[in-house]
Amino acid sequence: GPGLTDLFKTEKAAVKKMAKAIMADPSKADDVYQKWADKGYTLTQLSDFLKSKTRGKYDRVYNGYMTYR
């Protein structure tokens, strides 16, 4: 089956995709945050998933999740 690194890459891609969806349409934020909360994502995990070469690119999404939880 898929190894943990593959799983991480898949999760990371999914999280980034959802983060971009929030940035494009902030009204989606609560739905996405709820999904992440259901998956039990911690802020540390989210921070790892949303690492970007562009500093602060996903800060709004991260901060939103922090206040959501």
Rank of each mutant, 00 (worst) to 15 (best):
G1L: 11
G1Y: 11
P2N: 13
P2F: 04
G3A: 13
G3D: 14
G3V: 13
T5W: 04
T5K: 14
L7I: 12
F8G: 08
F8R: 11
F8I: 10
K9I: 06
K9C: 13
K9S: 06
K9R: 10
T10G: 09
T10I: 14
E11I: 06
K12M: 14
K12N: 04
K12R: 13
K12A: 14
A13W: 09
A13C: 13
A13Y: 08
A14G: 05
A14D: 07
A14I: 12
V15D: 00
K16I: 15
K16V: 14
K16Y: 04
K16W: 04
M18K: 03
A21N: 05
A21D: 08
I22F: 01
I22H: 00
A24Y: 08
D25L: 03
D25S: 04
D25N: 10
D25M: 04
D25C: 11
P26L: 06
S27I: 04
S27T: 13
S27R: 11
S27Y: 06
S27K: 10
K28N: 08
K28C: 14
K28G: 06
A29T: 04
D30C: 15
D30V: 12
D31G: 10
V32K: 02
Y33P: 00
Q34E: 09
Q34G: 10
K35M: 15
K35N: 10
K35C: 14
K35S: 12
K35Y: 14
K35I: 15
W36I: 01
A37P: 00
D38K: 10
D38Y: 08
D38A: 13
D38G: 07
K39V: 07
K39R: 11
K39G: 03
K39P: 01
G40F: 03
G40S: 04
Y41H: 03
Y41D: 01
T42R: 03
L43K: 04
T44C: 15
T44G: 10
T44F: 09
Q45N: 08
Q45A: 07
L46Q: 00
L46K: 00
S47A: 14
S47Q: 12
D48M: 15
D48P: 03
F49T: 02
L50H: 00
K51T: 11
K51I: 09
S52L: 04
S52K: 04
K53S: 10
K53E: 11
T54D: 11
T54C: 11
T54S: 10
R55T: 13
G56E: 05
K57P: 04
K57Y: 10
K57E: 09
Y58F: 07
Y58S: 01
D59R: 12
R60V: 14
R60Q: 14
R60E: 13
V61I: 12
V61Y: 02
Y62D: 01
Y62Q: 05
N63D: 11
G64I: 02
G64F: 02
G64Y: 02
Y65L: 00
Y65R: 00
M66T: 06
T67C: 15
R69M: 15
